[in-house]
Simulated assay, not measured.
Amino acid sequence: MPKFYNFKIAGYFLYFTSMCIVECFHAHASDSRLTETGSAKFFVKENGDTVVQNKGALNDRDLLKIQKFIKDHYKEMYLLWQQHDGGEFYRGN
């Protein structure tokens, strides 16, 4: 699973899977196992704001840190996601 970065944010890696590219742009946050079990899922809006679909095992403090990080880096994250055949920010689901 591709990671957006090789470092952790608030103790979690941000990543996506090959199946993620059929949905609108989003990121998962997980510990080193990179599994969806216990991971959070953030749908990213065109302005970098996020909608949390699944909080996973994250506490509110870590959730806010990750949301701020995504807001500050969403453009470069989107470019990486798009290199893996991702589509536009939003697709009809």
Score class of each variant (00 low, 15 high):
residue 45 K to P: 03
residue 45 K to R: 15
residue 45 K to C: 08
residue 45 K to W: 08
residue 45 K to Y: 14
residue 46 E to L: 07
residue 46 E to V: 08
residue 46 E to W: 05
residue 46 E to M: 10
residue 47 N to K: 07
residue 47 N to D: 15
residue 48 G to L: 02
residue 48 G to A: 07
residue 48 G to E: 04
residue 48 G to M: 02
residue 49 D to I: 06
residue 49 D to L: 12
residue 49 D to Y: 12
residue 49 D to H: 12
residue 50 T to Y: 07
residue 50 T to R: 04
residue 50 T to G: 09
residue 51 V to R: 09
residue 51 V to K: 11
residue 51 V to G: 00
residue 51 V to F: 09
residue 52 V to K: 03
residue 52 V to G: 05
residue 52 V to R: 04
residue 53 Q to L: 10
residue 53 Q to P: 02
residue 54 N to E: 14
residue 54 N to L: 12
residue 54 N to I: 11
residue 55 K to G: 05
residue 55 K to Y: 03
residue 55 K to T: 11
residue 55 K to V: 07
residue 56 G to V: 06
residue 56 G to C: 04
residue 57 A to S: 10
residue 57 A to F: 11
residue 57 A to M: 11
residue 57 A to Y: 09
residue 57 A to R: 14
residue 57 A to K: 15
residue 57 A to C: 08
residue 58 L to T: 02
residue 58 L to K: 05
residue 58 L to W: 01
residue 59 N to H: 14
residue 59 N to D: 15
residue 59 N to F: 07
residue 59 N to L: 08
residue 60 D to E: 15
residue 60 D to S: 14
residue 60 D to G: 07
residue 60 D to T: 11
residue 61 R to F: 15
residue 61 R to W: 12
residue 61 R to K: 15
residue 61 R to D: 14
residue 62 D to F: 02
residue 62 D to T: 01
residue 62 D to N: 14
residue 63 L to W: 04
residue 63 L to F: 08
residue 64 L to W: 05
residue 64 L to H: 12
residue 64 L to P: 02
residue 65 K to W: 01
residue 65 K to M: 10
residue 66 I to N: 03
residue 66 I to E: 06
residue 66 I to S: 02
residue 66 I to T: 05
residue 67 Q to R: 13
residue 67 Q to F: 00
residue 68 K to T: 08
residue 68 K to V: 03
residue 68 K to Y: 02
residue 69 F to Y: 14
residue 69 F to R: 04
residue 69 F to Q: 00
residue 70 I to T: 03
residue 71 K to P: 02
residue 71 K to F: 13
residue 72 D to A: 12
residue 72 D to H: 13
residue 72 D to Q: 15
residue 72 D to N: 15
residue 72 D to R: 12
residue 72 D to E: 15
residue 73 H to M: 08
residue 74 Y to Q: 03
residue 74 Y to H: 07
residue 75 K to Y: 09
residue 75 K to L: 14
residue 75 K to P: 00
residue 75 K to H: 09
residue 75 K to W: 01
residue 76 E to F: 04
residue 76 E to Q: 09
residue 76 E to W: 04
residue 77 M to N: 09
residue 77 M to I: 11
residue 77 M to L: 12
residue 77 M to H: 05
residue 78 Y to I: 06
residue 78 Y to A: 04
residue 79 L to Y: 11
residue 79 L to K: 14
residue 79 L to G: 10
residue 80 L to C: 03
residue 80 L to G: 01
residue 80 L to D: 02
residue 81 W to Q: 06
residue 82 Q to G: 03
residue 82 Q to V: 09
residue 82 Q to L: 10
residue 83 Q to C: 11
residue 83 Q to W: 11
residue 83 Q to S: 15
residue 83 Q to P: 04
residue 84 H to S: 10
residue 84 H to F: 15
residue 84 H to I: 07
residue 84 H to V: 09
residue 84 H to L: 09
residue 84 H to K: 14
residue 85 D to W: 13
residue 85 D to Y: 14
residue 85 D to P: 06
residue 85 D to K: 12
residue 86 G to Q: 01
residue 86 G to K: 00
residue 86 G to W: 01
residue 86 G to L: 01
residue 86 G to V: 03
